[in-house]
Protein backbone atom coordinates (compact mmCIF):
# COMPACT_ATOMS: atom_id res chain seq x y z
CA UNK A 1 0.00 0.00 0.00
CA UNK A 2 2.76 2.45 0.94
CA UNK A 3 4.65 1.64 -2.24
CA UNK A 4 1.56 2.19 -4.36
CA UNK A 5 0.96 5.52 -2.62
CA UNK A 6 4.58 6.54 -3.14
CA UNK A 7 4.15 5.93 -6.86
CA UNK A 8 0.98 8.02 -6.86
CA UNK A 9 2.84 10.78 -5.04
CA UNK A 10 5.58 10.57 -7.66
CA UNK A 11 3.05 10.89 -10.47
CA UNK A 12 1.44 13.87 -8.74
CA UNK A 13 4.78 15.61 -8.35
CA UNK A 14 5.66 14.83 -11.95
CA UNK A 15 2.47 16.30 -13.35
CA UNK A 16 2.80 19.26 -11.00
CA UNK A 17 6.29 20.06 -12.25
CA UNK A 18 5.12 19.70 -15.86
CA UNK A 19 2.22 22.08 -15.26
CA UNK A 20 4.29 24.62 -13.31
CA UNK A 21 6.81 24.77 -16.15
CA UNK A 22 4.11 25.69 -18.68
CA UNK A 23 3.44 29.26 -19.72
CA UNK A 24 -0.21 29.68 -18.85
CA UNK A 25 -0.85 31.12 -15.41
CA UNK A 26 -3.92 28.99 -14.78
CA UNK A 27 -1.99 25.79 -15.50
CA UNK A 28 0.69 26.92 -13.09
CA UNK A 29 -1.89 27.39 -10.34
CA UNK A 30 -3.34 23.94 -11.00
CA UNK A 31 0.23 22.67 -10.87
CA UNK A 32 0.83 24.19 -7.43
CA UNK A 33 -2.42 22.58 -6.30
CA UNK A 34 -1.22 19.17 -7.47
CA UNK A 35 2.15 19.77 -5.84
CA UNK A 36 0.56 20.43 -2.45
CA UNK A 37 -1.72 17.41 -2.89
CA UNK A 38 1.34 15.28 -3.53
CA UNK A 39 3.04 16.64 -0.43
CA UNK A 40 -0.05 16.04 1.70
CA UNK A 41 -0.46 12.50 0.44
CA UNK A 42 3.20 11.86 1.17
CA UNK A 43 2.78 13.18 4.70
CA UNK A 44 -0.13 10.81 5.25
CA UNK A 45 1.68 7.86 3.68
CA UNK A 46 4.86 8.36 5.66
CA UNK A 47 3.14 7.50 8.94
CA UNK A 48 2.05 4.10 7.66
CA UNK A 49 -1.31 3.15 6.19
CA UNK A 50 -3.80 0.40 6.99
CA UNK A 51 -2.71 -0.41 10.52
CA UNK A 52 -6.20 -1.71 11.12
CA UNK A 53 -7.60 0.46 13.89
CA UNK A 54 -8.79 3.94 14.64
CA UNK A 55 -6.39 6.40 16.29
CA UNK A 56 -7.79 5.82 19.76
CA UNK A 57 -5.43 5.26 22.61
CA UNK A 58 -6.70 3.41 25.63
CA UNK A 59 -4.82 0.98 27.84
CA UNK A 60 -3.73 -2.24 26.20
CA UNK A 61 -4.28 -1.22 22.58
CA UNK A 62 -2.10 -3.22 20.22
CA UNK A 63 -2.58 -1.50 16.86
CA UNK A 64 -3.64 2.06 16.20
CA UNK A 65 -3.21 4.58 13.44
CA UNK A 66 -0.90 7.47 14.19
CA UNK A 67 -3.24 10.46 14.63
CA UNK A 68 -0.56 13.11 14.30
CA UNK A 69 -0.13 13.07 10.49
CA UNK A 70 -3.88 13.44 10.10
CA UNK A 71 -3.83 16.61 12.17
CA UNK A 72 -0.80 17.82 10.23
CA UNK A 73 -2.36 17.09 6.88
CA UNK A 74 -5.53 18.96 7.85
CA UNK A 75 -3.47 22.00 8.80
CA UNK A 76 -1.48 21.81 5.59
CA UNK A 77 -4.63 21.42 3.48
CA UNK A 78 -6.24 24.46 5.07
CA UNK A 79 -3.12 26.52 4.46
CA UNK A 80 -2.85 25.47 0.84
CA UNK A 81 -6.58 26.14 0.38
CA UNK A 82 -6.08 29.71 1.57
CA UNK A 83 -2.97 30.27 -0.49
CA UNK A 84 -4.53 28.81 -3.64
CA UNK A 85 -7.57 31.05 -3.23
CA UNK A 86 -5.30 34.06 -2.85
CA UNK A 87 -3.26 32.94 -5.85
CA UNK A 88 -6.39 32.67 -8.01
CA UNK A 89 -7.57 36.16 -7.06
CA UNK A 90 -4.09 37.55 -7.66
CA UNK A 91 -3.87 35.83 -11.04
CA UNK A 92 -7.25 37.23 -12.04
CA UNK A 93 -6.25 40.77 -11.00
CA UNK A 94 -2.97 40.42 -12.87
CA UNK A 95 -4.78 39.22 -15.95
CA UNK A 96 -7.05 42.26 -15.78
CA UNK A 97 -4.18 44.70 -15.26
CA UNK A 98 -1.62 43.27 -17.64
CA UNK A 99 -4.01 41.78 -20.17
CA UNK A 100 -2.11 38.52 -20.39
CA UNK A 101 -1.82 35.22 -18.60
CA UNK A 102 1.32 34.21 -20.43
CA UNK A 103 4.37 34.03 -18.19
CA UNK A 104 6.64 34.72 -21.17
CA UNK A 105 5.17 38.20 -21.34
CA UNK A 106 5.57 38.77 -17.62
CA UNK A 107 9.33 38.99 -17.54
CA UNK A 108 10.57 42.13 -15.83
CA UNK A 109 11.84 44.88 -18.08
CA UNK A 110 15.16 46.60 -17.71
CA UNK A 111 13.86 50.13 -17.31
CA UNK A 112 13.73 51.71 -13.86
CA UNK A 113 11.39 49.99 -11.42
Amino acid sequence: MEILMSIVVGILFMSAVYLILSKSLLRIIIGTGLLSHGAHLLLLTMSGLKTGAAPVLTDGVESYTDPLPQALVLTAIVISFGVTAFFLVLAYRTYQELGTDNMEEMKGNDSND
Binding site: T32, T45, I79, V83
Partner: peptide, 13 residues
Protein backbone atom coordinates in the same frame (compact mmCIF):
# COMPACT_ATOMS: atom_id res chain seq x y z
CA UNK B 1 4.14 27.90 -2.64
CA UNK B 2 6.64 25.47 -4.11
CA UNK B 3 9.00 25.84 -1.18
CA UNK B 4 6.09 25.32 1.25
CA UNK B 5 5.16 22.08 -0.50
CA UNK B 6 8.79 21.00 -0.25
CA UNK B 7 8.78 21.93 3.44
CA UNK B 8 5.79 19.63 4.05
CA UNK B 9 7.58 16.89 2.09
CA UNK B 10 10.76 17.33 4.11
CA UNK B 11 8.82 17.19 7.37
CA UNK B 12 7.07 14.04 6.12
CA UNK B 13 10.38 12.32 5.44
Amino acid sequence: VISSALFVTAVAY
